[in-house]
């Protein structure tokens, strides 16, 4: 059947990667870029679980996904703290304006 769980997860994973890349490339808001990064990591986690299920090693995939969740949370927290500092220093979240200030 074409709508089985494996096919759905493959489509969702590829779709999430696409949306994340699009968001990170198009968005000018720093906070939105962090959101795009979060979406890409969710796609990676789904891919881990899918590969574990397909290989019959779901527990190893789960332990790797757990590591990804912790790492992703720390990355998100540090990135948001940096965003707050950028806002305090430059007064904007627009990466175009920030890069202009650097020149």
């Amino acid at each position: 059947m074409i709508f089985n769980l494996i096919n759905v997860v493959v489509v969702v994973t590829v779709g999430l990667v696409g949306i994340a890349i699009y968001g990170m490339l198009v968005s000018r808001n720093l906070m939105k870029i962090v959101v795009g990064l979060q979406l890409a990591v969710k796609a990676a986690m789904l891919a881990f679980i899918l590969s574990g299920r397909l290989n019959g090693k779901i527990d190893e995939a789960q332990s790797l996904a757990l590591t990804v969740i912790v790492t992703d949370t720390v990355v998100a927290v540090v990135a948001l703290a940096l965003v707050v500092q950028v806002r305090r220093k430059f007064g904007t979240l627009d990466i175009k304006a920030i890069s202009t200030l650097r020149r």
Binding site: L5, V8, V9, V12, M31, Q38, K42, M45, L46, I49, L50, G52, R53, I58, A61, Q62, A65, L66, I69, V70, D72, T73, A76, V77, L80
Partner: peptide, 27 residues
């Protein structure tokens, strides 16, 4: 939810509490 349906219940719970809960609060 999709992870839970794939048989990864432990990670699904962590993702729900950390990914949907903690990260949203931090955002």
């Amino acid at each position: 939810w999709l992870m839970f349906r794939m048989g990864a219940a432990e990670v699904a719970v962590v993702e729900l509490s950390v990914g949907a809960g903690l990260v949203t609060v931090i955002f």
